[in-house]
């Protein structure tokens, strides 16, 4: 891994067309501005992992019959709430 230090307002360039600027630093949080061509997919790496965890947590790995009725109950509970 290449490690660089930048001050606020300074940037780094990747290849010819990707520029990453440090916009602000506040305690433990760094705000970055990323300028890149449209075909470059910019992703945050942590939420990606979290989706996998969130999906695994939400997955119902059971016989569908066990969940029967939950959503119709949810729909009527929600209608009562308005």
């Amino acid at each position: 891994m290449l490690v660089l230090s930048r001050k606020v307002g300074e940037s780094i360039k990747l290849a010819d067309d990707i520029e990453i600027t440090v916009l602000a630093v506040d305690n433990q949080r760094v705000r970055l501005g990323i300028r890149a061509p449209r075909h470059i997919d910019v992703r945050r790496s942590t939420p990606e992992v979290n989706i996998v965890e969130a999906n695994r947590e939400a997955a119902l790995v059971t016989d569908p019959a066990e969940n029967k009725g939950i959503l119709s109950k949810a729909a009527s509970a929600r209608n009562k709430q308005g």
């Binding site: 939400a58 059971t62 569908p64 959503l71 119709s72 729909a75």
Partner: peptide, 24 residues
């Protein structure tokens, strides 16, 4: 989705019928 389940629904995996997600 059964009509009375609106706006909720189930998303069921085709390859693994036991894998289901509840969605809204």
């Amino acid at each position: 989705q059964e009509p009375e389940e609106r706006p909720f629904a189930w998303m069921q995996s085709v390859s693994d019928p036991k894998l289901t997600f509840a969605i809204v």
